[in-house]
Design a binder for these strands. Structure first.
Lengths: 257, 257
DNA sequence: GCCGAAGCTTAAAATTGGTTAATTCAGAAA
DNA sequence: TTTCTGAATTAACCAATTTTAAGCTTCGGC
């Protein structure tokens, strides 16, 4: 095809790119970005592990030793500050890559910890990098993952900067719900959420005490019920209204359904 | 080389990858991630424009039409919320890509605005995507850019979540200083910073009034002087101590000097 | 069944930061 | 010059959130 630079030509070549990205080379990245599909490829996974106790798989300032994919359970990506302060940057859910930075083999500015009862698959970053060279789909999948992570970081940023404590909590719970739903990991409206109030506080820029109060307020209003490691969304529409929740940011990077 | 899985074997093959990434294909991504080098490539840039008035080059929910590189000036990446609230997600400085998302041609969850007196270079995303297929270096450069943007988003998140107003402002000013220095864009200790207090407020999760108060306090302490679109860092060491500023996050993605 | 640790809950008191509102200032337009 | 507008500044007051300090509950280990 000629390298035309008029509007129509550009549009055509975009369509072509789009098709190329969708072409099946093992990683058509449809409506989800579920890295567990990497587990399916024969001989690529080094091992699968069950996590018993909180396990740090990456320390800030260090290079990730392996590329980990969270198969089941929860993880947190965070920064530790001097005076004991901690900021949780993102929560890892099943299907998420835990150490994306392993691919670039450079020191990262954050730590990653997996919570008990998680399951991870471990890969050799070089093996993946070699595969990337052969697969445009895998390249696109990685870029899409980056876009998605950035979009979520940006939304959390928005919560911390411009939402009230109540809105932040409501918003985060709705995000969990949406992310887990899209990977069909919700049973009976229960969400198993093994987080302490401390986790929510450290993610949302609040104190545990205020998280506690706010959770109580949300429960009193019959919106959500967080208790015993289980999250129940009781009245989603009112919750969505309260938080001004708009789920489109979660599909940044994915292709339309 | 055999696919050995012991520690030494893995380390060796990592070294090999590292060398491959450094190999010169036009984008060895040394100690900076300056996208203006893309401008040098003959016939790739569509046009260069000087921005007179605030110009939105990407609207949230839409697909970026072009890949823009900020050659000179300032830009903001932000989210607009319902009730008039705005959250600035990142400031764009010379050398930064303004619409990285143009490469994936998918709707973005944020907007990008360039401020007056900026200069941008405009590229056809498809042309770049074609080049990516031929150049492992360019692929690595893009990944490095993503890593870097994520690291900066994470640091801002940390500011909003766990730093006081004073620390936030001090930290941001030091980031500007560091980012501009690494691209040798500072003259005589002056930093031309055409931002309103509103910009700082919307980035740092504060009100303009409080930003004003805090700037005043910092000026009274002889730490910085922000006035008339110019930032002066008066006493860097004390400022670094106040903000607990640690610049390593800014080199995430780049190779050691 | 007791104990200790971790997590949760509650209640002041203290602080940070937000709101409202009025004043000044600088530059553009008339 | 005068006027107009957006931005910066200041002050007084107020609200949200943190801090501090207890008490309480749950649960695994002994």
């Amino acid at each position: 095809m000629a390298e035309s630079s008029n509007a129509i030509g550009v549009a055509e070549s975009r369509t072509e790119l789009s098709n190329r990205s969708r072409a099946s080379q093992g990683f058509p990245f449809g409506t989800t970005l579920d890295w567990r599909r990497l587990t399916q490829i024969q001989g690529l996974s080094l091992r699968q592990s069950v996590i018993n106790k909180p396990t740090t798989v990456l320390r800030q300032g260090q290079i990730a030793s392996s590329f980990f994919v969270l198969v089941d359970g929860w993880g947190v990506k965070y920064k530790q500050l001097g005076n004991g302060r901690r900021q949780i940057l993102s929560f890892l859910l099943p299907g998420d890559p835990a150490t994306l930075g392993a691919l670039s083999q450079q020191p990262m500015a954050h730590s990653v910890q997996l919570l008990p009862d998680s399951v991870v698959d471990e890969f050799d970053p070089d093996a993946i990098n070699r595969k990337v060279q052969d697969s445009e789909d895998l390249q696109a999948f990685i870029s899409a993952t980056y876009d998605n992570e950035l979009a979520r970081a940006d939304e959390l940023l928005t919560s911390l900067g411009r939402r009230s404590a109540k809105e932040r909590i409501a918003h985060l719970m709705l995000e969990f719900d949406a992310r887990l739903s899209s990977r069909s990991a919700i049973v009976d409206g229960y969400i198993v959420m093994p987080l302490r109030q401390r986790h929510l506080a450290d993610a949302l820029g609040l104190t545990t005490i205020h998280v506690n109060r706010t959770l109580r307020a949300l429960r009193d209003e019959n919106l959500i019920d967080v208790r015993g490691g289980v999250l129940r969304i009781l009245h989603r529409d009112r919750l969505v209204a309260l938080a001004n929740f708009e789920d489109s940011y979660l599909s940044v990077g994915t292709l339309p359904a």
